[in-house]
Design a protein around this nucleic acid. Structure first.
Lengths: 138, 138
DNA sequence: ATCCTTATTGCAAAAACTTGCAATAAGGAT
DNA sequence: ATCCTTATTGCAAGTTTTTGCAATAAGGAT
């Protein structure tokens, strides 16, 4: 009974298949603290699963986002990073020095509520990256 | 006196050089309604400037964002698109059908103010893409 | 345990994007 | 008008990400 078993369970219940590839990638994401880029995930995953293709990593990460098990963040540069997080949050990055601050989602709750009211959309809690200049760099 | 002259003027005042490449790309962005991807810009720009490299398009678009003359939007898929817009706004995209709604920045004003207060950052008005499900697709 | 269906993966090739460096050409100075 | 400085471009090579299709293997049914 490995540590990602509750997530694979969830996958199966949603009607998706649980493959070694998905298991390994989930495991990696669970043990990473913070974001990982697809190539970082690939490098780590290949250690446990030598035949793994980078393509599969890309597809799996995107798949996990679709199913809601992982979140994707697009950095200021548009580079991707993925993570699994129970506590939903966003980021504020300093454009000058790159310092990164975590913004808990509660701070956006009222915005989300008002957007949902005005647009009739049901918002998905996707990761948002705000950009700015930190106190020192201003 | 072409239509992008006020923008090239602004570039020069900021100390940057005005090149045929920048002029053409600005012209294209000004006449596009909505976003254009780098390759769309490239295809259009090459008609007026045959020797132009795609690299230059990428660099120029990013440059225009840095100087604040253009905005970049990262779609739900992470694909880039650029535009020039006087009225700053964001987007809400339906994950199912792709419908896109424009969110005027004023709706985020109070959020930005509270983020600036709590983090000491000075926020940059970068484009944000919200994701959700539209009324029909829910 | 075996078979069936079809979701997933591997593989290959393409598309999208980035980077380094030498050559070019803006724009200011003479 | 010409020269100088250096920002910007072209070019080539590299990295990252996407896509199509045939082969594989999960998971349900027998």
């Amino acid at each position: 009974m490995s540590c990602e078993s509750d997530l694979t369970q969830e996958l199966r219940e949603l009607g998706f298949r649980v493959t070694p590839q998905r298991r390994v990638i989930l495991h990696i994401l669970l043990h990473a603290n913070g974001h990982l880029t697809p190539s970082e995930v690939f490098a780590l995953a290949q250690e446990s699963l030598p035949g793994l293709m980078e393509t599969t990593v890309y597809r799996t990460l995107e798949f996990l986002v679709q199913t809601g098990l992982a979140q994707a963040a697009f950095g200021s540069n548009g580079k991707r990073a993925y993570e699994i997080s129970d506590e939903h949050h966003h980021h504020l990055i300093c454009r000058q020095c790159g310092k990164e601050i975590e913004i808990p989602h509660v701070q956006l709750d009222s915005l989300y509520a008002s957007l949902e009211a005005s647009t009739q959309f049901k918002l998905v809690h996707n990761h948002i990256t705000f950009l700015g200049l930190c106190a020192e760099c201003q």
